[in-house]
């Protein structure tokens, strides 16, 4: 099922991204000979501290895809977010878990879900405790400040 479906997904993604996309800058296979590894660049949503930044993601598709979910991570040390482990880029999002995944979802759908996660962090299942604590305390300016600090740091070191 896998390769043929991926071909179709690729074609449809190309079509969709040929116009303007609010959320996705890039979504494509890493190399022409390997459809099981993709890369993506997500745009930072407006009205969030991520705005005007973009974020790289690495996507690995298991050979059983779409029966099992894709494995997606942000680039390490690039995404300060409640539900992302900063040092590894590991994401906590239920639709990416085996027991919640559905084969009717696709890479495009997952990207949109990640974009929504940037808009609405979930404090109940944090992978970044610092950010979650500040957000729980309701200190919005400290929250924005810390994210900005991380993001600046990131731009400075790279």
């Amino acid at each position: 099922m896998s390769l043929k479906r991926l071909l179709k997904e690729k074609r449809l993604i190309e079509k969709e991204l040929s116009g303007y996309s609010e959320s996705i800058e890039l979504l494509e296979p890493v190399a022409f000979e390997n459809f099981l590894k993709w890369r993506a660049v997500l745009k930072g949503p407006v009205n969030t501290p991520y705005h005007k930044h973009s974020f790289k993601l690495l996507i690995e598709l298991p050979s059983e895809y779409p029966l099992v979910p894709p494995a997606i991570t942000f680039e390490p040390y690039s995404m300060p977010h409640c539900n992302v482990e900063f040092s590894t880029g590991k994401i906590c999002l239920n639709i990416l878990e085996h027991e919640h995944w559905s084969p009717v979802w696709n890479l495009m759908y997952v990207m949109v879900a990640l974009y929504q996660l940037l808009q609405e962090p979930v404090v109940d299942s944090p992978l970044n405790i610092d950010l979650a604590n500040i957000l729980r305390a309701g200190d919005t300016s400290a929250y924005h400040g810390l994210i900005n600090y991380y993001l600046q740091e990131d731009t400075a070191t790279h």
């Binding site: 997904e9 449809l12 239920n94 639709i95 696709n106 495009m108 759908y109 949109v112 996660l117 979930v122």
Partner: peptide
């Protein structure tokens, strides 16, 4: 558990 809110399907599946 994160992001339990249902998301609208994209055009691919409509």
């Amino acid at each position: 558990m994160t992001g339990t809110k249902p998301i609208k399907p994209t055009k691919l599946t409509m």
